[in-house]
Amino acid sequence: MRLIVDHVTHYRYDLPVRAVVQSHRLTPSLFDGQRVIRWKISVSDGQMGGGFRDGAGDWVQGWTVLGPVSGIKVHVEGEVETTDLTGMLRGHRETVPPLTYLHHTLPTRADMALAKLGEGLEDTTDSLGVAHELSRRVADAIHYRPGVTHNNTTAAEALALGEGVCQDHAHALIAVARHVGIPARYVSGYLHTDGDGTMQEAAHAWAELHVDGFGWVGFDPANRCCPDDRYIRLGSGLDAQDAAPIRGSARGLGEESLDVTVSVQTQQ
């Protein structure tokens, strides 16, 4: 499938700020499921900093804006040819050992309830089956509902609420998977939604589990599926913050407000 992305992140400040620094993970991953046709990132008044491919295979790019500015616009435009690999991350070059993704972080720590969610699969030898089952359980336990959770909601809190968005689903699946000893990570990217009412935000997130014999496999509990050719993968991390497409800071007293628009269209 050919997907066309237009993604604008607009930061506005009520008082001008200086010395803005950002770290981006906004470039599509290199693997057999996607091929970049064109991709362009621009930052208003921005100076490109150092860029490199990290051990997880992500392209990380620094940007700085000297300022003073009262707003910054990060614009991502591009076109990607995608192939459905039923969630398999085939042909992805990375050197971070999977065991590293057993680290617990605050939002992905398993409490009693999350631990319970992973119970009863100890005797199952089909590790891919276990991964699917965990994803199904998370989808059943947390219903999609925007607005009830926020950026800092933990997996445990979302499970207790029984509601959340894709970030909460991903965190919960990661927490449960790590708890049963399966390395798991957070993935951020885009999703093309065809308007049938079941799909979530176009700026999307899901989880990858490291399954014996298969390597990294994506699971999207929010949509009860594995990533296919409607998905564009950008980067990964231990949790949402670690995998964030944009991390940034600015000097100044200005209050920040954020406006994000994303569209992911198919090429007709």
Partner: peptide, 16 residues
Amino acid sequence: RLVYQNEAYEKAVVGI
């Protein structure tokens, strides 16, 4: 596990 699950192991500098 002693190395890669170690709290002091920094994923951010793998490959650097």
